[in-house]
Design a protein around this nucleic acid. Structure first.
Length: 203
DNA sequence: AAAGAAGCCAACCGCAAATAA
DNA sequence: GTTATTTGCGGTTGGCTTCTT
């Protein structure tokens, strides 16, 4: 199979990069009228100079009306950690258990937040291990389990992470997490804006 | 106030699986 | 059964924003 045929990104007609408001509206309108279909033909039929892949991604990760945007709640965070412990990097599988969240969002969240905290905790653990080992070495000859931690092991990160992690939320009041959700969408426009415009268009 | 670093997230890429012809 | 096309997934990157010095 020729991937270049499939991925028409070399075609000068194909747009890449951030979506414009106009493109979003076209896609929303088209799907509202015709439903999701074969993405490649949908892109053409809608008159979008995007690949089907790009349209699908945009729709699933951003434009769908049921996409929840904003901060991951502590409950969701817990769930993500549990499910990741169970399944590893199966983001789409994990996302299915978090209504309104996309695999991309969860993946980003994991990589930027949780992984960072795991590393910090590992360092902390290693430090305290070596301190303990130093202490033991100086006091006795008993052998220790001073092996470095693996990349991470699921059962232990759950216990070890939650305490230090929770203290790093911007606020101590969990209710504020959900209420501040709409404040971080300043990039372009809010989905509410787009959907209300879509409604104004009469579709 | 400016510059550089770090954080964050939308979007792209490549691959594999599923499906259609 | 084979080939072509589409879909879905996970990894990665580019660029914008925020923080720190």
């Amino acid at each position: 199979m020729d991937k270049k045929q499939c991925n028409t990104s070399q075609d000068p007609e194909v747009r890449k990069g951030p979506w414009t408001m106009e493109e979003d509206l076209i896609l929303i309108n088209y799907i509202a009228n015709h439903g999701e279909g074969v993405w490649n033909s949908l892109a053409k039929a809608a008159g979008l100079k995007r690949t089907g892949k790009s349209c699908r991604l945009r729709w699933l990760n951003y434009l769908r009306p049921d996409v929840r945007r904003g901060n991951i709640t502590p409950e969701e965070q817990l769930l993500i950690m549990e499910l990741h412990a169970k399944w590893g990097n199966r983001w789409s599988k994990i996302a299915k258990h978090l209504p309104g969240r996309t695999d991309n969002e969860i993946k980003n969240y994991w990589r930027t937040r949780i992984q960072k905290h795991i590393k910090q905790a590992e360092n902390f653990q290693q430090q305290s291990n070596s301190e303990i080992n130093d202490h033991q070495a100086s006091t006795s000859q008993v052998s220790t389990m001073a092996e470095p931690m693996e990349t991470y092991s699921s059962p232990c990160y759950q216990g070890m992470m939650l305490e230090p992690f929770s203290t790093q939320f911007p606020t101590n009041n969990p209710e504020q997490y959900s209420s501040c959700c709409t404040n971080d969408n300043n990039n372009y426009w809010s989905m509410e804006d787009i959907w209300s415009m879509q409604l104004l268009n009469g579709d």
